[in-house]
Design a binder for these strands. Sequence first.
DNA 1: TCTTGAATGTAAATAACTTTACAATTGGAT
DNA 2: ATCCAATTGTAAAGTTATTTACATTCAAGA
Lengths: 230, 230
Amino acid sequence: MSYIFNFGVPGFMDALSPEQQKLVEDAGSIRRYSHKQHLQSRGDQDQAFSIIKAGSVCFGKTDSSGKFIALATLEAGQCYGEFTVFAGLPRTHDGFTVGETVISHISKARFDRLLLDHPDLAGAIIRVQTLRLHQALEWIDDLRRYPLKYRLGKYLLFILASADGPRIAITQSDLADLMGVSRVAVSGVLADYRARGFLRPVYGGLEILDSEGLRKWLRSFLTLDPLVAH
Amino acid sequence: MSYIFNFGVPGFMDALSPEQQKLVEDAGSIRRYSHKQHLQSRGDQDQAFSIIKAGSVCFGKTDSSGKFIALATLEAGQCYGEFTVFAGLPRTHDGFTVGETVISHISKARFDRLLLDHPDLAGAIIRVQTLRLHQALEWIDDLRRYPLKYRLGKYLLFILASADGPRIAITQSDLADLMGVSRVAVSGVLADYRARGFLRPVYGGLEILDSEGLRKWLRSFLTLDPLVAH
DNA sequence: TCTTGAATGTAAATAACTTTACAATTGGAT
DNA sequence: ATCCAATTGTAAAGTTATTTACATTCAAGA
């Protein structure tokens, strides 16, 4: 899984040359975490740029009523903490590990120095942040324009593209958190997809049976969406 | 009005030093437009960075069914075209002028050279793009978490903050386009706000009567929102 | 002053989604 | 082999927003 607004957009590390990658990786200090360990809370003032070396991290926000909405689950190779380092913001999301996780942390001070010493990093950063902003605005349009019935299908195709088989390992509850809707709503859409022969729910995941059929069906609704056009 | 996801975030020009502003402004060529003149369509391949010198520009997307959803209306002093210049993307939105408008255009080639000659511009760009991304993610959370009843109030407070009086000049239809909902829904929420004494609809706009009352009322629902906390 | 297009207010039927609830199924642990 | 917690399927009632429709109000121009 990845930034759910961020499919098709390279992570920071991918946007860097091998030499730049080494520079950034060497600047960090390694820490290990167990499953479901708390990493940060929205509002925390610590500032650091972090690279996930193994495992994954789920980010989201919980309001006072206890409702959690996930923004993304980042996996090994991806980074977070850009907001604190690039814009000086406090932590914008709650974060916790999913599975045994290893993370390399770079303090803001150290990252700032890295950027001063290697101004060529700026180009990659601008490009990636701009692509992410673009994806975020596309997502906002999707949210306001299309019902869950179509958004979920689009999302599943994205997940499938980065999966290595027709099986997607995600519970309907987690899927609901990521789409920002109730589990019942997800369950209903999946039942509809099953009836159409697009997929088959299995315990703890989904098996996509006809991704091309799903894509074709979506294309007739999500008319201005090149991502589904593929 | 401004980027509706972007309140509190400086525009590019605001983030630059006076010398940098002059550099960027001097690089552009001026063009004049009449009211409701088409500027660009989603998918256009031309690449340029543009600064609105007078008037304003409305950006949004229209799908094949004809449904238009606005992203933002930018006013004098604000810029657009970052996606084409910073990330090489085609135009992401349809754009048209609102009122007599004057725009300064800088070609991508010229902007690239500007950035090469003045690498100190990169810091401001990174910061602004990161802040915008942050605002976009906050907006996404709002969309998924809160009903229109609360989102609209939050938006009105933002508009009010950059207005010079209690009167906001925007029709309910335009408000609906900006919120991505139907005019009827906006009308209903405004009727509710009127009943609560927060505002009074006037022809072609709104008159805010009790912004502090509205803020207080919102605060009890939008619990994790510092913007309303103010 | 009168006309006219734009904007507003409101109602009714429908669609999308939520919350709550409960039964059935699954897979791992003892 | 059995238990148990997690997951899934589904139903019902309520909320939010949509679409369509129509009457009313407003402001600007003839």
